[in-house]
Amino acid sequence: MNYRRLTPSMSLLLAFEAAARHESYTRAARELSLTQSAVSRQVQTLEAQLGVRLFRREGRNIVLTDVGRLYLRELGDALAQIRSATLQAVAYGSGMGTLRLALLPTFGSTWLLPRLSRFYAANPGVQVHVHSRIQAVDFTDGEIDAAITVGSGDWPELVVHPLLEESMVVVASPALLAAGAPVDAETIAAQTLLQVASHPPLWANWFARHGLAPERMRSGPNFELTSHLLQAVRSGIGVGLVPQMLVEDDVRHGHLLSVGEPIPSKRTYCLAYPSRNAVLPSLKAFRQWLLTELGG
């Protein structure tokens, strides 16, 4: 067996893997900073070396063949292992190294970042590079080592450490509810209701929980970020239903008024990462610090 045929060059493999993920030479070329024709030629060279067709044409689009789909699955895991090995080498070569951490923006600004100085004091050899992510984190490109995100925690392809169970609480500007009337469910129901666009229908659940007719809801603006919603609440635009842990300091300092009892959301904040990253010294240090910080 010709071992050269079994070990194509990395440039050919990267061109195929990017084209296969996108099923597009154009998007693969943009990702790899190459021309479309260069990516196409590299894929053709790889097909000739392997003696199989990896793509077929459907009009102006390219579609993986069955063997191409199989090759992508196996190759993706292999490239991820190579990237992980490289990260480990870099980390060991520079002490503890760096951690590329994806965070929900408001969680980062209100909970993690105010505490991060304690991590640096205990781990002076580590740098944490923070990347804001609203949507689910994609670990396949190797650009993120770990993420703190919120959800069910049922992600079998990842190592998951539950951190905090999420509870939602109604918050309002003290000035908005300063008329002296009792602040109860009826009072809140009469306000403009603000919500984060990506969240489930929280207010509908809240109305049902308090036995209020849904047609009484006065829906207000939606926001992409919880931090923007909270600023709108502070400004008196309306009331919000937000994670309790994100507003504890504002409530404590009197910037916001918390109304009623917290409601469990059935979601959990988790630290999650691919198993291949578990050996990273920077991630080991951060994981241990984070779980200790939370009393885990």
Rank of each mutant, 00 (worst) to 15 (best):
Q49F: 03
S173H: 00
N277K: 11
M96L: 14
K284M: 13
S109F: 09
L75R: 00
A102Y: 03
M96G: 14
R267E: 14
G236H: 07
F119P: 02
P264M: 00
P281E: 02
R234F: 00
L54G: 02
E47N: 05
D138M: 03
R60W: 09
V196L: 02
V39G: 05
R4S: 10
R115A: 14
N222V: 10
A121P: 01
T192E: 11
Q244K: 10
F223E: 03
V67W: 11
R73K: 12
N2C: 07
V67C: 08
T292R: 14
S227H: 10
G68L: 02
R73G: 09
Y269F: 15
E215D: 13
S132F: 13
W289D: 06
L75W: 01
V242E: 00
R41D: 14
S167V: 05
L163Y: 01
L50V: 06
L241W: 01
F223Q: 05
L256I: 00
L72S: 08
V63M: 07
P221F: 08
I148C: 05
T45S: 13
V43G: 04
T140M: 05
V160G: 03
L176P: 01
L164N: 02
V233C: 03
L13T: 05
W206P: 05
D249L: 07
W111I: 14
E157W: 10
Y269N: 09
L194I: 01
A121L: 11
S117R: 14
C270D: 00
S109R: 13
L72A: 09
R5N: 10
R60L: 11
F223C: 04
E74W: 10
L103G: 00
E74A: 14
L6T: 10
G151M: 04
A185S: 10
V130Q: 10
G68E: 02
Q195C: 07
V251Y: 02
Y269R: 15
M245I: 15
L46C: 03
H199T: 08
Y25T: 06
G151K: 02
Q195L: 06
